[in-house]
């Protein structure tokens, strides 16, 4: 199965990024072939709607699952429209996140947080 994970750097030793929309890279990993590559998240520097654009990037890679510690509302709408499942990672380590997923121990991310849209807030 093909997975996407937001990660801090382009190595397996880096860690899972806490922000989905603003993550610098996505790791695309195939659990069957063990093949992997890193994708630059061009949404990281966008002014607004980063989550939506990042989600579009992930969807375009045709992964079947997204492993992330959190995910904004709008991004989740995009991901779900593509029938991609969102799982919540527990640890920072990329490897352990993948392993825990393979063991079937990650749960679906259901507490989606509303994004911080708007214009600077109050």
């Amino acid at each position: 199965m093909k997975l996407a994970i937001p990660v801090e750097d382009k190595t397996m030793e880096s860690s899972v990024c806490i922000s989905f929309g603003r993550t610098p890279y996505f790791l695309i990993y195939d659990t069957d072939t063990k093949e992997s590559f890193f994708l630059v998240n061009s949404a990281a520097s966008s002014q607004g709607g980063a989550g939506i654009k990042a989600a579009q990037t992930v969807v375009d890679t045709k992964v079947e699952a997204l492993l992330t510690p959190r995910c904004g509302e709008n991004a989740a709408v995009v991901i779900k429209a593509a029938n991609i499942k969102i799982y919540k990672t527990i640890k920072d380590s990329i490897e352990s996140s993948i392993n825990t997923f393979i063991e079937g121990k990650l749960s679906l991310l259901d507490e989606i947080h509303p994004g911080f849209h708007g214009h600077g807030g109050k």
Partner: peptide, 22 residues
């Protein structure tokens, strides 16, 4: 989708999404 600076649009499969609040 690529044009919108605010990323208010997405195209998934054959579905066109508009994020009105964005």
């Amino acid at each position: 989708v690529d044009f919108c600076k605010f990323n208010a649009l997405a195209y998934i499969g054959t579905k066109f999404l508009v994020f009105e609040e964005v």
